[in-house]
Design a protein around this nucleic acid. Structure first.
Length: 466
RNA sequence: GUCCCCAUCGUCUAGAGGCCUAGGACACCUCCCUUUCACGGAGGCGACCGGGGUUCGAAUCCCCGUGGGGACGCCA
């Protein structure tokens, strides 16, 4: 059977890092098996869904390069289909109208909680053989509930967690259509996964408790339509924040696009996410092509994983070092422009980047570190006091004068500095450090001669003369 | 509260009963390289949650405990 997987976010916010990983695994599984990856937008919660959120999800997936083969499907556009299925269930007796009011249900829940019981529907309107149902009140619009089996257990072999067994006695008759007639999540998922021929449902493990309900509905549907088959399920454990707490809006569950803004390469984020909860022996760094080739559900960890920015940084640095220089320069120029620093043809940006890329964890850091090539640096006062001392000023003046004459190459500049150092019987850093401070603004930088070569003669002399 | 899931270095993980003196990566520390800081190179520190079983043998299987997480909506 051809593999068909899906990613089914609800558009109530941006695509966060956990959602991105779920999408990534689903995507990779389809790729690995030459299957189809489907995007489905679960927007039945009209009150919370927004077009902006849909766009944010689309943008996030595009940035990461998680392309889908089908979709996006929108559940709101499938209303007729859901209503049709609900009707067949009503006709088949696997669903029924329930007239319990919200207040009534709320009171029931509170009472059960007070009795330390698991809150659930009491089955008041559930039809049973030989049971007389109450007379429906006129002022209440009924909801429709699924008639869940009372006995037995629901069992499935979770592709990540192994065999999971949940007793039907733990489940109640869930609402599949609201009073206004709109279907609810668990029901839509079942219809969609079935209609779309999903073979592996790969999703977050907060859905484990929904799975037995969905399986029961699927089985009920399968009694009506024998072509319906159960998918396999793979429940991914969640990603925790760096503090070990659940990722949430106020707990670092940032949008994947925030990583873009913060200067992370999609390759790094992808590689990091792939490795978070999945492994291939000791392999740490790999391309998406390699990942898709290796990916399997057997090597997914069942336990929750904590997000670690330092490792992401390390990977990001790795991919920055590997990045195409021209592409990198384009990105860095844009980031500099955002800060009001405009890149000019000289000094050469790609040369400047080559000098700094090895030490940058993010593109923002990289942009920051080459900014002084295009705007006067703010000279660090402490570094200046320490390195630009009285006794060295005359040496610098002499050097500056010679700089006007020297051939403008890294080698020639280096030779000139070395010669100055020698003629004054100094140590190399004694001259290099003040140059560094005056030219770059700080005490840490790559080789100062290489920097000067890129910066240009006039600007170098200008900075040394001020 | 009830049900479900999970448990190896600080973190991500390898580990399918003997290959484990528990391996790798990030972080951290030391040294080397060096023109400062990085990069890079070489080392180091550092873990099987606890208790019972099963077995000749357990990080690996079973049970109990503990700890963490999730679910219990006319949200998804």
């Amino acid at each position: 059977m051809t593999v068909r997987t899906r990613f089914a976010p609800s558009p109530t916010g941006f695509l966060h890092i956990g959602g991105a990983r779920t999408a990534l695994f689903s995507w990779a599984f389809a790729k690995k098996h030459g299957g189809t990856f489907i995007l489905r937008i679960e927007d039945t919660d009209v009150a919370r869904s927004t077009p902006e959120a849909v766009q944010a999800i689309l943008d996030g997936m595009q940035w990461l390069g998680l392309d889908y083969d089908e979709g996006p499907y929108y559940q709101m556009q499938r209303m007729e289909r859901y209503k049709q299925v609900i009707q067949t269930m009503l006709d088949a007796g696997s669903a029924y109208y329930c007239y319990s009011s919200r207040e009534e249900l709320e009171a029931l829940r509170e009472q059960q909680m007070a009795n330390k019981q698991k809150p659930r529907y009491d089955g008041k309107w559930r039809p049973e053989a030989g049971k007389t149902l109450p007379t429906p009140p006129k002022d209440i619009q009924p909801v429709i509930r699924f008639k869940n089996p009372v006995d037995g257990v629901v069992v499935w072999d979770d592709l990540v967690k192994g065999r999971i067994e949940i007793a039907n006695s733990e489940l109640d008759d869930l609402i599949i259509a609201r009073a206004d007639g709109t279907p609810t999540y668990n029901f839509c998922v079942v219809v969609d996964d079935s209609d779309m021929g999903i073979t592996q449902v790969i999703r977050g493990d907060d859905h484990v408790n929904n799975t037995p309900r969905q399986i029961n509905m699927l089985k009920a549907l399968a009694e009506i339509d024998t072509a319906i088959q159960l998918p396999q399920y793979a429940h991914l454990s969640m990603i925790l924040g760096s503090d070990g707490q659940k990722l949430s809006k106020r707990h670092g569950a940032v949008s994947v696009m925030q990583y873009h803004e913060d200067g992370y390469l999609p390759e790094a984020v992808l590689n990091y996410l792939a490795r978070l909860g999945w492994s291939h022996g000791d392999d740490e760094v790999f391309s998406m092509a390699q990942f898709c080739d290796w990916f399997d559900l057997n090597h997914i960890t069942a336990s929750a994983a904590q997000f670690n920015t330092e490792k992401l940084n390390w990977l990001n640095n790795h991919y920055i070092k590997l990045a195409d220089l021209t592409e990198l320069a384009k990105d860095i120029a844009a980031r500099l422009a955002q800060q009001g620093v405009h890149v000019t043809a000289t000094p050469n940006l790609t040369d400047a980047i080559s000098l700094y890329r090895d030490r940058a964890n993010t593109l923002n850091e990289l942009a920051q570190s080459v900014a002084y090539f295009y705007s006067k640096p703010q000279v660090d006062a402490e570094a200046k006091a320490k390195h630009v001392t009285e006794d060295i000023l005359s040496v610098l003046a002499g050097l500056t004068a010679q700089l006007a004459e020297v051939e403008w190459t890294t080698e020639a500049i280096h030779a000139l500095i070395a010669q100055t150092v020698a003629s004054h019987a100094l140590k190399f850093p004694k001259v290099a450090m003040p140059l560094r401070v005056l030219i770059t603004g700080g005490a840490q930088s790559p080789s100062i001669d290489a920097i000067m070569a890129i910066l240009g003669r006039d600007e170098t002399i200008a900075r040394l003369s001020s």
